[in-house]
Every structure is written in C-alpha cells, then in structure tokens.
Simulated scan of single mutants.
Amino acid sequence: MKTKRWKYAVAIIFMMSVLFPFGAPKSDAASKYVELELQWKDGRINHIQTLLKDGVTYGSFFSLGSGAGLNWKMEGENTAVLSGYNKRVVVRMGSKIAEVNGRKVDMGREPVWYISHLYVPIKFLASALDGELANQDLKTGKVTVTGLSNYKDTFYGSVMGYNYTIRAATGDIEITNVYTGQKNSIPLGIKDIDVNTHDLTIDFKLTPKNLLVVTVEYTNRKTKDYDLYTLIFKNQGLIRKSAAHGLMEKFEILKPDGTIQLMDDQNLRVIDDGSGSVLEVTAR
C-alpha cells in the first residue's frame, strides 16, 4: 500500500501547488495543519501550512526543495532525492535515516505521506537546507525557520530561436539552437555564483543594424555594485566580449549616435554598429 501511495504522489506532484498557501481550503484533517514561516537567505519570506503529527512538525520535502532551487527525482520506488549545486538530500520511506551530501543523519521520525505530499521532520529539513528551526509557538503551533539557502544553479534567457544558459558550476554561458540542438559554450569568468547574496540577470538588445547584444549583470544585493558581462553577436557568431567588475552606476551600452560601448576593467571601447569594428579605445 505504501508503494502505491508513493507512486501516486509522484504522478500528481506536478499538479499540486509548489507550496500550500496559508488560508487555502482545508482538508477533512485540517486540524493537523499549522503555520510555517520560511525565511530565506535571499530575502524571501513564505507563510504556508504544514503538517503537525504526533507532536512533530513536518515540512513538505518536494515543496521546500523546489523553493530552495533543488531538483527532485525518484531513485527506485521508495527513495526520494533533492539535488542541485553542492547539495544532495536523500530520504527513504520507512527509514528515519537520511543522507545529506553523503552524510547519514537521523531525522528522528520516518517520512510521512499525506494529501499528495511527502513530509519529513521540519527540524531536519531546515538543517539540510542550511537553516534552523528558530521558534515554535506552543499556543498556536506556528513554527519559524530561518536562514534557508537557495541552491539555484542555472539561469536562462531566450531570443531569436536560441536559449542562453549560465550554470553556477562553470560560470560559462551555453548557447543552444532550439531547432537543431547544436550547442556552443563561451567562458564568462563568473566565479562562485551565490543567489543568496546576489542577483543574476540576462538581457538582450538588438541594434539598428542587427547586432545582438547580450548582457549579464551579477549584482550584490547589499552593496549594489555589479559585474557586467557583455557579448556582441553578428549572424549568431561572437565578435566582441567584455567584462567589467565592481560597477556602481548604470552603464549605457547602446549610445544615441548608434555606436556600442564596451567596458572592461581597463578600457572603454566604442564599437561600430553593423561591422563590429573598434572605432575608439580610451582608458577608464
């Protein structure tokens, strides 16, 4: 019976919302739900309903894992896995022993399947996601978890039939033709991408003479300084690339006179639209 329930959970998990919103319609066992506040290192705060069973508060394994930017999958019939950049969490039905990055951890209780969600003790799950159970209100049952990490490791953009992907593990930008599947990788030099402290955005601009300008901004949320990576393509071929670090002011790449500005850590280059030729170089 447990195996059938487990397979059923996997089949319909995509049809469930990633997180139960607080105040959503309650099931016939709604008295078993309590409020859970999730505080993330990247600044997010979520309020959801979570399961209280036999005096133990549980968190949704797949939902919190998705919120942390981790991918989930099944390994066999009774093993659930969350994995991503530098993080792998494994739990097994019928076992209190989990694995976090290869290290065995006693969760205290076995996983629980309830209303289409797999639940594990929230104290364990918070710790596995580098957070901690900060407070539990004995009157209301509300639990507050702080310091949860985001492990998102892949960033996407798409334009003109091409997908642009940046992976934290390499810091390169991978360009894929959506029609042929052909891939090309270009080193950017972004090191140690951390979405808990920084924002990463990919933007696209087409010049009047059909050059494609791709910009990647990696911004420190606290200090507001950012690194700017710029690539210029002509007929899908890379013709110019630059990287400038520690910028504080907004930098305009496309100038009113129709030229393109490229900045690196030493120089400012003025590029001709259309040909991509360097018209002028000045020291910063």
Results as ranks from 00 to 15, higher is better:
Val91Pro: 02
Leu211Asp: 04
Lys4Leu: 09
Ile115Ser: 12
Gly246Arg: 00
Gly181Lys: 01
Glu252Asp: 12
Phe20Val: 08
Trp6Gln: 08
Ile186Arg: 00
Ile45Cys: 05
Arg269Ala: 05
Met74Thr: 09
Thr282Cys: 04
Asn210His: 10
Met160Pro: 02
Ser83Asp: 04
Asp194Gln: 06
Ala80Phe: 11
Met263Asp: 02
Gly141Phe: 11
Asp225Ile: 09
Leu52Met: 07
Asn210Tyr: 06
Lys205Arg: 14
Asn196Glu: 10
Lys32Pro: 00
Tyr114Thr: 09
Met93Asp: 07
Lys87Ala: 14
Leu200Asp: 01
Gln136Arg: 15
Glu35Met: 08
Asp106Tyr: 15
Ser116Ala: 13
Trp113Ser: 12
Val143Met: 09
Asn46Tyr: 15
Val34Asp: 05
Pro25Lys: 05
Lys222Arg: 01
Tyr218Asn: 01
Phe20Arg: 02
Ala126Thr: 07
Leu188Arg: 03
Ser277Lys: 15
Tyr179Ile: 04
Gly69Pro: 04
Gln236Phe: 12
Thr146Glu: 13
Gly108His: 13
Thr50Gly: 00
Asn235Val: 05
His245Tyr: 09
Thr180Ala: 11
Pro25Ala: 09
His198Met: 05
Thr180Lys: 10
Ala24Thr: 08
Asn184Ala: 13
Asp137Pro: 07
Val213Lys: 02
Asp194Leu: 06
Ile12Met: 11
Gly94Thr: 03
Thr180Ser: 14
Pro21Cys: 08
Glu280Ser: 14
Phe204Met: 10
Arg221Gly: 04
Asp153Arg: 13
Leu38Gln: 14
Val281Cys: 06
Lys205Cys: 05
Ser95Val: 03
Asp257Met: 11
Phe20Gly: 15
Asp153Gly: 11
Pro121Lys: 13
Val91Cys: 04
Gly67Leu: 15
Asp273Tyr: 03
Val56Pro: 02
Gln182Asn: 08
Lys152Met: 10
Ile190Gln: 00
Gly274Arg: 09
Glu99Pro: 07
Leu125Ala: 12
Val56Arg: 10
Thr165Trp: 00
Ser277Cys: 09
Leu36Tyr: 06
Gln236Gly: 03
Ile271Tyr: 03
Gly189Pro: 01
Ile97Arg: 04
Gly276Thr: 02
Trp40Asp: 08
Ser127Thr: 06
Arg221Cys: 05
Arg240Phe: 02
Leu129Phe: 13
Val159Ser: 07
Ser60Ile: 06
Asn184Ile: 04
Gly276Met: 01
Ser27Cys: 08
Tyr229Phe: 01
Lys53Tyr: 13
Asn135Gln: 13
Phe20Ile: 14
Ser95His: 15
Asn78Glu: 08
Gly147Pro: 03
Val18Trp: 02
Thr215His: 00
Pro187Ser: 10
Glu37Ala: 10
Ser116Val: 06
Phe22Met: 05
Asn184Leu: 06
Asn163Arg: 15
Glu132Phe: 11
Trp6Ile: 12
Asp42Ile: 07
Val100Lys: 14
Leu247Trp: 07
Leu38Lys: 09
Glu110His: 11
Val120Trp: 11
Ser27Pro: 10
Val56Ile: 15
Arg5Asp: 15
Ser17Gly: 11
Leu188Gly: 08
Gly23Asn: 06
Pro25Leu: 07
Ser242Thr: 13
Asn101Tyr: 06
Lys53Leu: 12
Ala169Leu: 04
Met16Ser: 08
Ala244Val: 11
